[in-house]
């Protein structure tokens, strides 16, 4: 399986969740669920991360923060929105300070439902995201190869 071969590093940010999903994300890292056995490491540095796990809906003050973190992550990258708040705003949808789901600010690849999302579902979401990550990587590699051969072809003709 792709995720066993690779070692994806994840970055977690709490947009404006109630903490329920956050502690479940952390629970994934601890002995019972232990995602580190798949080589998944939780990092605090966006420049080291491949998978962006985000919980909670977007509010006025953190939309810039979320955008900033996303832009700092190197390509290819995938975003996993965890919990119903990250998908649509959830129970807080009608609050005056909530803009909505994460996809209002950055593109989301995988939505994990639930309030709070269970660790098993989070792991499943990350594994799905890794498939998408692999596709993106291949696409990038393909594009780079096309560019490279075009460059060579141009170089040979001159």
């Amino acid at each position: 399986m792709a995720f066993l071969k690779r070692s994806p590093w994840i970055l977690h940010y709490d947009a404006s969740s109630c903490n329920g999903c956050d502690i479940e994300v952390l629970a994934c890292l601890t002995p019972l669920y232990d995602v580190e056995r798949f080589g998944i490491i939780n990092t605090g540095n966006p420049k080291h991360a491949d998978v962006f796990l985000i919980t909670g809906g977007i509010n006025e003050q953190n939309r810039e923060v979320v955008k900033n973190i996303y832009e700092q992550m190197p390509e290819p990258k995938v975003v996993v929105a965890i919990g119903v708040c990250a998908a649509s705003g959830g129970i807080f949808r009608e609050c005056y300070n909530i803009v909505g789901g994460v996809d209002k600010v950055i593109p989301v690849d995988v939505y994990v439902p639930g309030c709070a999302a269970r660790p098993e579902m989070i792991i499943d979401g990350v594994v799905t995201a890794l498939g998408i990550l692999e596709e993106k990587r291949e696409k990038m590699a393909g594009a780079a190869q096309t560019k490279e051969s075009a460059r060579r072809a141009a170089g040979e003709s001159t």
Binding site: D14, A15, S16, S17, G56, G57, N59, E60, Q61, N62, V65, F92, E94, C95, Y96, N97, I98
Partner: peptide, 13 residues
Amino acid sequence: GYIHRGLEQLVQK
């Protein structure tokens, strides 16, 4: 303020 949602106002809804 990074997680301020304003849920106190939800009592009216």
